[in-house]
């Protein structure tokens, strides 16, 4: 198995494992540490984590798959989660959605061929006063307009080009 985490991640995991009255509480924090480092919690990670907690891999996956933010497979460098809930609907997120689909040439749930963008819809992200909005990786972009979205996407494209994926 080629599963290896950075020293930093291992340290963080160590800290989480000893932090709670019952070790099990560290499961979600450990998911996040792994997710931040690898962009997902894949099967290898699931098995590794199961070992840390002395859980069955099934139990780990059961918890993992309960939460929408935790991915099992890596996705694009920029994961765009566009809010589809009521406030964004009232403020016509669908215009932004079609615009994004046109710009990126992907459907909801897909990743661009170059692996730079993944487009997905999300339930309410708590930005309803600044709708429509999207979360890209872990940052919020609010009061979206077509123009703003074009600008952002172009910027990310450039960055992906210069820095590699």
């Amino acid at each position: 198995m080629s599963f290896e985490l950075s020293e930093k991640a291992k340290k963080e995991i160590e800290r989480e494992l000893g932090r709670y009255p019952v070790k099990d509480s560290a499961l979600l924090p450990v998911f996040w540490i792994v997710h931040n480092e690898r962009g997902c919690v894949d099967d290898e990670a699931v098995e590794y984590i199961a070992g840390l907690f002395d859980f069955s891999a099934a139990k780990v996956l059961g918890v993992l798959s309960f939460y929408w933010m935790l991915r099992r497979k890596s996705a694009g460098k920029y994961v765009i989660s566009l809010c589809k809930n009521i406030s964004c609907y009232l403020r016509e997120y669908e215009n932004i959605l079609t615009h994004l689909q046109d710009l990126l040439k992907v459907q909801v749930g897909e990743t661009t061929k170059d692996g730079v963008f993944t487009l997905q819809l999300a339930e309410c992200l708590g930005s309803c006063g600044t709708a429509p909005m999207m979360m890209v990786n872990n940052r919020y972009y609010e009061d979206l307009t077509r123009e703003r979205v074009t600008e952002l996407v172009e910027g990310w494209r450039k960055e992906a080009m210069t820095n590699g994926k």
């Binding site: 339930e123 309410c124 708590g126 930005s127 309803c128 006063g129």
Partner: peptide
């Protein structure tokens, strides 16, 4: 956890 749609005060 503030996830009720339309709610963003705790934020």
């Amino acid at each position: 956890d503030e996830s009720e749609p339309g709610t963003f005060k705790d934020r």
